[in-house]
Design a binder for these strands. Structure first.
Lengths: 226, 226
DNA sequence: TCCTGTTTTATGTATGTACATAATAGTGAG
DNA sequence: CTCACTATTATGTACATACATAAAACAGGA
């Protein structure tokens, strides 16, 4: 029995409630004997299920079925160009604004960089010329001076950064917003529409490289499976 | 060198661009020799980084640094009670409605169950008596007849289902909505507020068990890190 | 040139063994 | 009874070895 088969068997037993939520399951050595494989194989299978949140494991205490499984969800952050072209539509990007300016207080807080002027970019991404998502981006020009020279009409800010700048992590939040007059115009939608908002920060070597807010067109959805 | 140390070393080399995006990295056996450990250890480390999206691996072709890392994001679906009590607020749940009725077409499509009447529940979750999130839930009573007898005043629908019903997967979408008059009243907010919406489906044995829409109070945010 | 079948190679998986580690369970002294 | 120490035990990790598998690279023939 390979580790995938062991996983399937364990999943099935949990699903059929042979092993109930919160219950202790047999230890690795016993499962290995029962299923006719090495303990390493069982370990591989159970470790995977624990990472998926289906099991909870502790040394000596053993392995038990999670009380609330499927709480962890994974989704892939959209690469806007791929998302649009993947549906057979034509991708477009217009840079609406590009200035050096002092960030507003909430951006200062997010970027932890004080009130020195940094690069601000406003862009609109379109699918078949229809507004798809608008982007407000702040770039830490102290960490990335090259951003001052980059030509963001030839390549989108996001693609330039991904290509040119190393980074090693980030965080983001999802929220909702009602379209004010300015957003309604940029996204060509009714004022007051509910809009999905993604705020993202990207890090490298302990510094915030860039902070970006994406406001999606009305009706946009993010999907995920568990 | 343990597998964690190997991971750290590889992360560092990617971060410092010793290995650039898209580039091939040395194969496992060579890394094992260089770092002074067994191939299995290197395999464990690299497999983890590939799962995290930092590397791309293919048999025979080798391992290369991902062009767009950090596209995968994981977050934990909130357990409403925990989320509220975790902030030191008082959790509350009122069931506003509970009827057997034919689901509207979009719910029929989501539940793949036709137009036979099923159980509909509307509830409001509160934090310190302030509306926190409102829930519209449909329960497949053919799969879960016990739901017809359950007392959802003593326990929230969500908690009852998690406790009583086995399930083995689900999916969800995140979107945004402008509050209409009804939602504004339920959530005690201004009509037209932008609201975050989570639509979730839960499966067991090939059937949709329950479909639920959560509409969060204005200003609600979901967080994640990569 | 193009197709086809063969070789080569890097990753993927399985196994037995050994030891490390964390945390429970048990023991004994006070 | 309580505290401190010890033994036990299930998981965690490391390693050497072996074989499986996918896919690129190569060779040979039409």
């Amino acid at each position: 029995m390979g580790w995938q088969a062991v996983q399937d068997e364990v999943r099935a037993r949990i699903s059929r409630r042979v092993w109930k939520p919160g219950a202790l399951i047999p230890h690795e050595a016993e499962l290995a004997r029962e299923l006719g494989c090495a303990r390493a194989t069982v370990n591989r299978a159970l470790r995977g299920l624990a990472e998926a949140g289906l099991l909870e494991r502790r040394r000596k205490a053993g392995t038990r079925v999670a009380l609330t499984p499927f709480r962890r969800a994974e989704f892939t952050i959209p690469l806007i160009r791929d998302e649009i072209e993947g549906r057979g539509q034509r991708f477009g990007c217009q840079v609406l604004s590009r200035v050096l300016r002092a960030p507003p207080p909430e951006v200062q807080a997010r970027m932890e960089g004080g009130d020195a002027p940094i690069l601000y970019l406003a862009a609109l991404y379109t699918a078949d010329n229809a507004p798809y998502v608008c982007e407000d981006r702040w770039i830490n020009t102290h960490a990335i001076p090259a951003a001052l020279e980059a030509d963001f009409t030839a390549i989108s800010p996001n693609e330039w950064l991904v290509r040119e700048v190393p980074f090693d992590g980030g965080d983001f939040t999802l929220s909702a917003l009602a379209a004010d007059a300015g957003l309604a115009e940029r996204l060509d939608c009714a004022a007051g529409s509910g809009l999905l908002v993604l705020d993202r920060r990207t890090w490298h070597a302990g510094q915030v490289i860039t902070s970006v807010r994406l406001v999606f067109h009305p009706g946009y959805r993010m999907h995920s499976q568990t």
